[in-house]
Amino acid sequence: MRTTIATAVVSGLLLGLAPLTAAVAAPSGGDLPPGCKRHKQYGHTFVICKGENGKDGADGKDGPQGPAGPVRAPQVLTGPEQEVPADTSKEYAGPECPSGTSIVGGGHYQVKTPSFALVQGDRPDGQQWKVWLNNAHVGSAKTTATSVKVYTICLPVD
């Protein structure tokens, strides 16, 4: 029997038989240790043994802090106080979002209360928020003038 461990180890690595933990000589046809198998290559018989996987190594150190992300704080732009006369129904607009931002919402609040003005709807329109108020006479209730401020919510775009 003529098998050297060095030949077996080098041949096993060249054949891509990693992970390779031991190469042993064994007589042809003899019993092999657990985890071992015979491999024939280039007229030679090699016995290749693979052990159990070892324990995982310790975790590496944390990497450096990454760069800060972009600041994307919303801007709330409030328009001027707008008069809402009694017995009217009309639309009121908030300010437009500036260049480099996009509208993401909006709303309104009535400055003078109490008021019987009813919201008929609100919506984005281009880069500004609009609200439709109905301050018309309803039933026996007498309407009074009020005022409203409309606001637009804008978010910076990438």
Results as ranks from 00 to 15, higher is better:
M1D: 15
T3H: 15
T3L: 13
A8D: 10
L13I: 09
L15I: 11
A18F: 04
P19N: 00
T21K: 00
T21W: 04
A22E: 01
A23Y: 02
A26H: 08
P27N: 10
G29H: 01
G29V: 07
D31A: 14
D31Y: 07
L32R: 00
P34V: 01
P34L: 03
P34H: 00
G35V: 05
C36L: 10
K37W: 09
H39R: 14
Q41I: 14
Y42D: 15
G43A: 07
G43P: 12
H44N: 15
H44C: 11
H44G: 08
T45L: 15
K50V: 09
G51D: 05
E52R: 12
G54K: 05
K55N: 15
P67H: 04
A68P: 11
A68M: 05
V76A: 13
V76E: 09
V76Q: 13
T78R: 14
T78P: 08
T78D: 06
G79S: 04
G79F: 11
P80G: 02
E81P: 02
Q82L: 09
P85A: 13
Y92K: 04
P98S: 05
G100V: 07
T101R: 03
S102K: 14
I103C: 09
V104I: 15
G105L: 07
H108W: 15
Y109S: 14
Y109R: 13
Q110H: 12
V111A: 12
K112V: 15
P114S: 12
A117M: 05
L118T: 10
V119R: 09
D122I: 00
R123K: 14
R123C: 04
P124W: 02
D125W: 04
G126H: 11
G126Y: 03
Q127M: 10
Q127E: 09
Q128V: 06
Q128K: 15
K130I: 03
A136N: 07
H137P: 01
G139E: 00
S140D: 07
S140E: 12
S140N: 07
T146K: 08
V148D: 03
V148P: 01
V148I: 08
V148R: 01
K149W: 07
K149F: 08
T152L: 05
I153W: 09
C154L: 03
C154I: 06
V157S: 07
V157N: 03
D158W: 00
